[in-house]
Each structure stands twice: as structure tokens, then as C-alpha cells.
């Protein structure tokens, strides 16, 4: 079994729900975002970029690409970063020495460091901590804990707390546009494979940062939007 995720950019509406549920479910401390959504070339919220005389604002969610050839895993001196049997790149918080070499190595800038002891948010009484409230260990390795140690690196785990129970990652569960599809790459009947075959909606897949030869297991579907869409073109809509 090998987990993969598809992000259909033609469907993505740029709402950032994936980023927020990711943070909420995974108890990501203040300042830490495993998942982020910006429009390529127009990083300011609600702006466009001029392309070929037209405008574009193509939303592109980016989280850990779960690389088959993960530079972060190669970089990690202690083996804290490792790939589990499902192909998911995880961090063992107990083994991370906080050298941040993995952050240097990751071309996607998805790795986040606990620069301070996570604070929780002020509540009516004391502090309130959101997120999955239990530790998750994989072969003894601490791959998730709501109580983050200071000085360690963290990142998307494909929601190991849910996927280890057969569920989908929170971002895929919550995407209101159904733009995120998760499943077993090896299983031809999985949601992932079905979507990849174009059985749901035929689209062209591609991966981010090919120049880094990372072989991601997060695959994007190209948007069908035309750059000159301001003008539009005729005769493409079939009457039914």
C-alpha cells in the first residue's frame, strides 16, 4: 500500500479550508502551518496576476509532497524523518534533534520548526488546545502528539492519526470543493486511482518542483482555465 493525494487545481476554489482544518486537527501551534494556499504569482489575498494580457489567480495548495525521493529524509542525521510502510514521510518527535537540515533540504518549504514551546490559545479559563488529543506512535516512534516538544521540526503526516485507522486526511475530508482525493496508489480501485484515470473528471496530472527530482506522491491536476479567459472563446459549449 502506498498513499497518494490528488489536488485538482481545476476544482480548488482557494478557500483555505484545507489549511485551517489541517492546523486544527493536527494541533499545529501558533505560527505553524503544514498546509498553505496561495495563488501562483499573486501571493496577496484576493489579488490577480496579469498573464498574457489576461488575469489569473490560480489557487495552489501546498503541503508536504510526501516525496518518494524525499530530500528531508536523506538529510535527517538521526533518522527521525522516515518513510513508513504506506509511503508516508513522518517525523519521530522523540528523535528529532532540531538541526533543521531537513528544512534546508525541503524545496517545498513545508517543514515547520517549533521555535518556541507551543502556548495554546487563551481561553476563558487557562488555555485551550485544539486538535487530535492523543499521541500516535508507529513502532514506538512518536509521529504525532498534541503536546509539541519545543525545538523539533514538524510537517504534514497525511493525518497519520486518521489514515492509520483507514480514514482520509482532514484536508481531503473537509475540502468543500472535493478537490482533494486520497487513496492507495497501488490499488486500481482506490479513489486515487479512479481519479487519476480520469473516471471522475478527466484532467491532466503533474507534480510540483520536478527540477528537484523528488517524485512526490501529491499529484496536481492542471486547471482548465485559459490564460486569455478575459476575452473568452466561442463555440466551446455544447448544447444539451
Amino acid at each position: 500500500m502506498k498513499y497518494g493525494m490528488i489536488i485538482d487545481l481545476d476544482r480548488c476554489i482557494g478557500c483555505r479550508t484545507c489549511a485551517v482544518v489541517c492546523k486544527n486537527h493536527n494541533a499545529e501551534p501558533e505560527g505553524i502551518w503544514w498546509n498553505r494556499v496561495f495563488a501562483s504569482g499573486a501571493p496577496n489575498y484576493a489579488t490577480a496576476v496579469a498573464v498574457d494580457g489576461g488575469m489569473r489567480s490560480e489557487f495552489l495548495p501546498v503541503s508536504c509532497q510526501q516525496c518518494e525521493n524525499a530530500p528531508c529524509e536523506t538529510a535527517c542525521p538521526t533518522g527521525a524523518t522516515y518513510t513508513d510502510e504506506n509511503g508516508v514521510v513522518l517525523v519521530d518527535y522523540d528523535s528529532c534533534i532540531g538541526c533543521r537540515y531537513c528544512m534546508v533540504a525541503c524545496p517545498y518549504n513545508v517543514r515547520q520548526f517549533n521555535w518556541q514551546k507551543p502556548q495554546g490559545i487563551p481561553a476563558t479559563e487557562g488555555t485551550y488546545s485544539y486538535g487530535y488529543p492523543f499521541e500516535v506512535r508507529q513502532d514506538g516512534k512518536l509521529v504525532y502528539t498534541p503536546d509539541r516538544p519545543e525545538g523539533v521540526v514538524e510537517k504534514c503526516t497525511f493525518c497519520v492519526q486518521y489514515t492509520s485507522e483507514g480514514g482520509d486526511p482532514a484536508c481531503c475530508v473537509a475540502c468543500p470543493a472535493n478537490a482533494r482525493i486520497f487513496g492507495d496508489i497501488d490499488d486500481p480501485d482506490s479513489a486515487y486511482s479512479q481519479y487519476m484515470k480520469g473516471l471522475v473528471s478527466p484532467k491532466e496530472p503533474y507534480t510540483l518542483g520536478d527540477e528537484y527530482h523528488t517524485d512526490p506522491k501529491v499529484v496536481y491536476m492542471r486547471s482548465s482555465r485559459k490564460a486569455d479567459a478575459r476575452v473568452g472563446s466561442e463555440g466551446e459549449v455544447t448544447e444539451r
Binding site: I13, G14, A39, A46, A48, G54, M55, R56, S57, E58, F59, R225, A229, R230, V231, G232, E236, V237
Partner: peptide, 13 residues
């Protein structure tokens, strides 16, 4: 050019 324009076939400004 709002997000809805981006997700349309055509944006008419």
C-alpha cells in the same frame, strides 16, 4: 478578477 472569475470559463470585466 475575483476567485469566481478564476473558476469560470470566462471573465467579463
Amino acid at each position: 478578477y475575483c476567485p469566481t472569475a478564476e473558476k469560470s470559463d470566462e471573465w467579463v470585466q
